[in-house]
């Protein structure tokens, strides 16, 4: 069986799955729209969560949050289920496919056979859509891939029951009820307000303050932990910023695209100017990545101390830009 499902590649998996499932139901919602309404943009430094032996730094909201907020704000109801039994998880999936209902799944990346090797880390918050089954292979629409792909029954079971942080536990979801007409305007305003609140939060690890904290840490890491670890951490900042799914510049470009769309939707011309400003902020993040890569290119060789100072100052400049930006955005809406 195969459901007639249109696959669109997206930058990020969570937005992509929501956008693809909505389009399947006849609602034309773009990826940036999902990201913006779900308040996806963020900066957060999480020292106690180690990813690949370095502290986690994220440029977006926690997995699942974008999705939940989007659904709530536009009034779409999703059915979601987690499973203890592998058998039940499979039966529920097959049952939905038989009903011609494509479903979203949360999966772990490590065992995804079609992913390139260097992306296969133990990261459990990836999302994809299953839209049918041929023989013993499930038909997969993975939003970060250019084309649709397949997984065997065994492979799918493995990725659905990956273990570790954010273990998916077979998590499966699909939309069940829709409002007659999507109320986007209110949802956009709510989404923007929350992003402004998060980015300007008075918490040292979150938003603008979080960027400043990390800038300071760049000054200290090489003293405290040695050059090699400092460069490893620096590489981590850039990897998280440019990781598959970010659309470049730590999600800043996707957000700029959202602001442009919101400008047309709300008829608020101020948002177009702000979209351009956000694009420039994205460019600053990329400039930072270029300079950082010159430092971590040599993993253990001692680089001049000035370089770390320079990177820290660049990040602080970005923090100031973002602070001004979100204050303006808050006023504009």
């Amino acid at each position: 069986m195969e459901i007639n499902f249109e696959h669109h590649q997206s930058a990020h998996c969570e937005n992509g799955v929501v956008s693809n499932l909505m389009r399947h139901q006849g609602f034309d919602i773009s990826e940036p729209m999902v990201f913006g309404i779900g308040s996806g943009l963020l900066f957060c430094y999480i020292p106690f969560l180690k990813v690949n032996h370095a502290p986690a730094i994220t440029y977006r909201a926690m997995p699942g949050f974008i999705f939940n907020r989007f659904a709530k704000r536009v009034g779409v109801e999703f059915k979601r289920k987690k499973f203890k039994s592998h058998q039940q998880a499979k039966e529920e999936l097959d049952f939905n496919l038989k009903k011609n209902n494509p479903v979203g799944l949360q999966v772990g990346v490590y065992h995804l056979s079609y992913f390139p090797d260097e992306y296969r880390f133990h990261f459990n918050a990836h999302n994809l859509v299953v839209y049918g089954r041929k023989g013993d292979r499930y038909l997969i629409s993975d939003p970060v891939m250019e084309k649709v792909t397949t997984l065997s029954e065994k492979e799918l079971e493995k990725v659905r029951f990956a273990k570790g942080a954010f273990a998916p536990k077979g998590h499966l979801y699909y939309p069940v009820s829709f409002p007659k007409k999507l109320e986007l305007n209110n949802a956009i305003v709510k989404g923007i307000k929350q992003t402004c609140r998060d980015m300007l939060a008075p918490v040292p690890y979150v938003g603008v303050k979080g960027i400043k904290t990390v800038a300071n840490l760049i000054r200290k890491w090489y003293k405290r932990k040695g050059v090699k670890t400092a460069n490893h951490y620096l590489g981590q900042i850039v990897r998280m910023q440019e990781e598959i799914g970010t659309g470049g510049g730590g999600f800043r470009y996707i957000y700029a695209a959202f602001l442009q769309e919101a400008c047309k939707q709300l008829g608020n011309s101020e948002l177009q100017k702000l979209s351009e400003e956000m694009t420039q902020i994205g460019d600053s993040w990329r400039d930072f990545a270029v300079d950082a890569s010159r430092v971590y290119k040599n993993r253990a060789t001692k680089t001049s101390v000035d370089l770390y100072e320079d990177l820290a100052q660049q990040l602080e400049a970005i923090a100031i830009k973002e602070e001004l930006f979100f204050k303006k955005l808050k006023k504009a809406i």
Binding site: E118, N231, V238, R239, S293, Y296
Partner: peptide, 10 residues
Amino acid sequence: TPKTIALSNA
């Protein structure tokens, strides 16, 4: 390139 370096370092 900056990303490729970071990935291959990892």
